[in-house]
């Protein structure tokens, strides 16, 4: 029961996010808008109920399950890459390698510098 009550809160915030997206013609998804709104709501309230915490933990723990049907799509839409598979594969593999490297190095540098600054 408690988990369902928390789930209802999540669904309501998702509907709120979707409404904002459609009404304000925003390019951001309703889920992300709902996430932003619920975070600010909790910051203003200053606490999170057990119902909501357990519902969110439950959903997050099955996040992989929810994205699986989409992942399966790769195997069934792979033929659309044909002809340009080299460009696509190189862009995805090398591009992602470089961007992960950039993120890690950049963030490490700024974090270390910030900590030295404080000392």
């Amino acid at each position: 029961m408690t988990m369902l009550r928390g789930f209802l809160v999540l669904v309501l915030f998702f509907i709120l996010g979707e409404s904002l997206r459609v009404l304000l013609a925003l390019p951001v998804s309703g889920g992300v808008l709902g996430m932003v709104v619920i975070t600010f709501t909790l910051m203003v309230r200053g606490s999170v109920s057990d119902d909501l915490a357990s519902a969110s933990q439950g959903l997050i723990s099955v996040l992989v399950l929810l994205i699986m049907p989409g992942v399966v799509g790769v195997f069934f839409t792979a033929d659309q890459f044909s002809g340009q598979w080299l460009a696509v594969a190189a862009a995805l593999l090398v591009g992602t390698f470089l961007s992960v490297l950039t993120t890690l190095v950049l963030m490490k540098l700024v974090t270390v510098r910030g900590e030295q600054h404080r000392e």
């Binding site: 999540l10 669904v11 996010g17 709104v37 619920i38 999170v48 997050i60």
Partner: peptide, 21 residues
């Protein structure tokens, strides 16, 4: 599988809770 993937919306909202914590 849409019965599962439709939950991605509320699951995205749920990410706000650890964000707050």
């Amino acid at each position: 599988a849409r019965w599962l993937t439709v939950l991605l919306g509320p699951a995205t909202v749920a990410l706000g809770i650890p964000l707050y914590q």
